[in-house]
Amino acid sequence: MIVAENLVKEFRLTERKPGLVGSLSTLFTREHRIVRAVDGVSFTIPAGSKTAYIGANGAGKSTTIKMLTGIMTPTGGRCLVRGIEPYRHRQANARSIGVVFGQRSQLWWDLSVPDSFRILRRIYDVPDPVYRRNLALYRDLLDIDALGTTPVRQLSLGQRMRAEIAASLLHDPAVVFWDEPTIGLDMVLKDAVRHLVNHVHRELGTTVVLTSHDIADIAAICDSALVVDRGRVVHQGSIRDLLRTAERRSVVFDHRGGPDPGHACARIEQELPGVSASPAEDGRIKVDYPVDRFTSRQVLAFLLERFDLADCYAPEPDLEDVLRRIYAGGSRSPLAAGVAGPGQGGAA
């Protein structure tokens, strides 16, 4: 289980002067600007869950991950990973976690992937059967053998990310923190990575904490979501609950006979105030309704009464739309959402 209690991280950014003299002068006189990247975040991530840690750029995701992995010490509050404070007991914590930083390589730059794995195996004391089982898994799912003996620095981004992901799971960690793990992967490999993490989760009950800007990653891997905005938690719960916060949902239907799609849309919009209807592909019609005024049942009842329905379904709300609204909340300006600092959550 992972717990954060009122977690705060402030950065003191030194205003540096240029040049050697300037750099040395910062040893004696310093001017600072304080930036609060994580602003009193509290959450609980149950063991064995697969949680998406979601937020706009600069929302404090990576900073929180760095505190949970023991790299950085919080300015205030605390966090616990499996009962220990990672930054106080960094090495003990490190034994039970696996980490991918999409932006940074943790492989040996001048060595091949198999050589890096051999080193990791020794560092983490991976037992032989586990090591062999995991290599077989990576061979099957990630085609890891294709990377051969090429040094890591000569691998493409996609090849390297495959190795990074495998490396993070090599020692069967109880918790994995993946920060942007699918950068540079094509669709087939993204699928493979999602399949791998779901497989590992099923077999070992691994707790997964994922940050990604790829909504498809989140949808394919995670069962719960933690949404942060400007350093604060604005939503915590299952992905399903998150989707329920959508302001608008839709129903798509196909009908026989009756009015042509253009007329049908006009009629629906006229009779259901606040609803918008538009022709969708294959002659279907998509009805968007505000959830605070109608239930899907009411919309369906209306449609059944007016049209001879051939097909009808209510798709899940679009996660991307939900998140876009959360990110844009508060200030309404998408650019302002990228600035770390105190601010109130914008979830409606």
Partner: peptide, 29 residues
């Protein structure tokens, strides 16, 4: 305090030999 060294309570500290074993791969690598 204690960023690096203290181990989790209840976890025995590894022996010096075990510690060296964890670091040797950095030399061979």
């Amino acid at each position: 305090s204690g960023v690096d060294v203290p181990e989790r309570e209840g976890t025995p500290r590894p022996s010096p030999a075990a510690r060296v074993r964890h670091y040797l791969p950095f030399a061979t690598g």
